[in-house]
Amino acid sequence: MKKITSIAASVAFLLLGASAASAGDAQKGSQTFREKGCWQCHGFEGQGGSAGPRLANTQLPEDGLIAFVHGTNGPMPPFSEKLVSDAQLSDIYAYLQSRPKPADAKTIPLLQP
């Protein structure tokens, strides 16, 4: 119940459009993102794909991401605190926020109809 409450709070936070700066280490986060297998569904850059949504530059707040990873019962399997600690998730969050912002699709010729 605690986790569900936490996720709900995070979603509410997201809906309000707020996001917090991460205290995590992006370089460590890059390493952990690979070691823990996050890249498998979300891509090395967190770009997302058919197996998992985009995480790069996510609007999700850091504590929302941490709560989700530990407690999800949706399509993604949960990763307990034993598998990936809050501190490691903070690093991952920092890594995801450090990804370059994508160009406007309208400026990429190959993406024009």
Binding site: G43, E45, Q47, G49, R99, P102, I108, L110, L111, P113
Partner: peptide, 28 residues
Amino acid sequence: RGREAAAAAVAWDASPISTARLCMELYG
């Protein structure tokens, strides 16, 4: 259509190459 194009633009210059870039370079 607009949302799909925006999603394809993410990690456009990444290496290894994104599957969106692979497909759109080919289609081009």
